[in-house]
Computed example of a mutant assay.
Amino acid sequence: MSLSNADLATVSDLAARRRATTTVAQAEALAAQVVDTDRLAVTLLSEFRAAWSTGDHDQMTAVILAAIDLDQTAPDAPCLMDEIRGINTPAAA
């Protein structure tokens, strides 16, 4: 008994062609970009929180500019600026 039966799954012609023409190196490079983007976003958010807690406005500005650049280069990723804006937004009860 198998948990899933992918052998019987159907795939569109476009997806099948894309899969056939994508090399392992290309897939790994794409995965690395996503991981690096996530890691950078977490690092920037941590830096912003540290700067915010000490009132370091210059560092906060630098992080905001980097976050805007990251959001523009990774439009499919969650918006980091939304996270930064939410830091001083009171939570709803």
Rank of each mutant, 00 (worst) to 15 (best):
A32K: 03
P78D: 11
D7V: 11
G86S: 09
L80C: 04
G86Y: 13
A6F: 04
I87H: 07
R17K: 13
I68T: 12
P78M: 06
E83F: 14
D71H: 08
V42I: 08
T10R: 15
S2I: 07
T43A: 11
T10C: 11
I87Q: 09
V63M: 03
F48D: 02
F48S: 02
M60I: 00
L44Y: 12
V63L: 02
L80W: 00
R18I: 07
P90A: 13
P75A: 10
A31W: 00
D69K: 12
D56E: 08
D7N: 10
D71I: 00
A27E: 10
A32L: 02
L40N: 04
P75S: 10
V63S: 00
S12T: 08
L8S: 09
D71Q: 04
S12E: 02
V34T: 10
D56W: 01
D36V: 07
T23L: 10
L30Q: 14
T54D: 15
D56M: 05
A67L: 03
W52V: 02
S46Y: 14
T37N: 14
F48R: 01
Q72W: 02
P75D: 09
A15Y: 05
N5F: 01
E83H: 12
P90L: 08
T23C: 09
T23W: 05
S4F: 11
C79W: 07
M81E: 07
R39L: 10
V34G: 11
A29Y: 04
T43R: 13
G55D: 05
A62K: 08
V63D: 00
A66F: 01
E83S: 12
L30V: 08
A93Y: 05
Q26E: 05
L44S: 06
A6E: 06
V42D: 10
A66K: 12
L70I: 00
A9P: 01
Q33H: 09
R19H: 14
T61R: 15
L70K: 00
I84H: 01
Q72T: 06
L70S: 00
A41C: 08
S4H: 08
L44G: 07
T89I: 05
A50K: 14
A20R: 12
V63K: 00
D13G: 06
V24W: 04
R49C: 09
P90I: 04
F48L: 07
D58P: 03
T43C: 06
I87R: 11
Q59F: 03
A16W: 02
I64F: 12
A32H: 02
A77F: 02
T61D: 15
L30H: 13
L70T: 00
T73W: 06
S4K: 04
Q26N: 01
A29S: 10
A31N: 05
A16L: 11
A51L: 05
G86W: 14
Q26A: 07
Q33F: 03
G86R: 08
F48Y: 15
D38M: 08
A67K: 00
Q33V: 05
Q59N: 13
F48Q: 01
M1R: 14
